[in-house]
């Protein structure tokens, strides 16, 4: 019955998992949690070993590429308390390969796959719901407040789609931003955000879009419940068509 602690980073998680899998026989009897730095915390603290994390990651890539995606999406969810499940999931991934995601009757697999699928779903949703506004200098800005930390894969999506433009994506809650400028992508933190001025034609284009949004609905089929279930209200804050 081992109890292990790690520093809470995804790299730390991977290196801890690598360490545990090398030493423990039965992962079903091991727990792994984030260190809370209380005085009498029980468990063996595993310091992050970058080399071990990288080696484990490439091993996983070779043996179970699907599990790498699952892990990546899982980290976007920023959900604590599931490290033990992740440990067991990764042990099964090494054993069974990419097929592991089909083992949904296993509680740990189910838990990890569900969280990761949810993050993936929000990423897909934001690819549609993100709204850019044109700024005075000709660049475009989009603001969002997603539940999951999806800014990186999301900006990769737009870097393939809107290549000729300059744009920013800003995650308001996490204060992170992605910037696409002259064909290269940078990610960073923004300490103080001031909304830049919009370009002159921006309001006119927004009015066109709002008009379209209003007239494309068939009045006889009005169904606000269906609309909200497809497009939850938490996303409306930055939707051009849902502003005043």
């Amino acid at each position: 019955m081992g109890r292990y602690l790690y520093d809470g980073t995804s790299e730390g998680l991977l290196s801890a998992v690598a360490h545990i899998l090398a030493g423990e026989k039965d992962v079903e009897r091991v727990t792994l949690v984030e260190r809370e730095n209380t005085l009498f915390e029980e468990g063996v603290y595993l310091a992050t070993d970058t080399a071990a994390a990288e080696e484990f990651f490439s091993r996983l890539q070779n043996l179970a590429s699907e599990a790498v995606y699952t892990f990546y999406y899982f980290t976007m969810a920023e959900k604590g308390g599931l490290e033990t499940s992740m440990l067991r999931y990764l042990a099964l991934a090494l054993q069974h390969g990419s097929k592991v995601n089909g083992y949904l009757t296993h509680p740990s697999v189910k838990e990890i796959v569900t969280v990761s699928r949810k993050a993936g779903r929000e990423l897909h949703r934001m690819k549609g719901l993100l709204r850019f506004e044109k700024l005075q200098d000709g660049a475009y800005l989009a603001r969002m407040e997603p539940d999951n930390n999806i800014i990186h894969p999301l900006s990769l999506h737009f870097s393939k789609r809107l290549r000729a433009e300059d744009w920013f994506i800003y995650d308001v809650r996490r204060r992170t931003a992605a910037r696409w400028h002259r064909g290269s992508l940078t990610l960073g933190l923004i300490e103080q955000f001031t909304a830049p001025a919009l370009s002159e034609e921006e309001k006119a284009v927004q009015a066109l879009w709002k008009t379209f949004f209003g007239t494309i609905a068939i009045p006889e089929r009005r169904n606000p419940r269906l609309q909200k279930s497809n497009m939850p209200m938490k996303y409306w804050k930055y939707l051009t068509e849902k502003q005043g």
Partner: peptide, 17 residues
């Protein structure tokens, strides 16, 4: 400008859902 995605992407939902 632009590309297409195999799965398709919905961008909004109108008042009829």
């Amino acid at each position: 400008t632009g590309n297409t995605s195999q799965s398709g992407i919905c961008h909004s939902w109108s008042d009829d859902g």
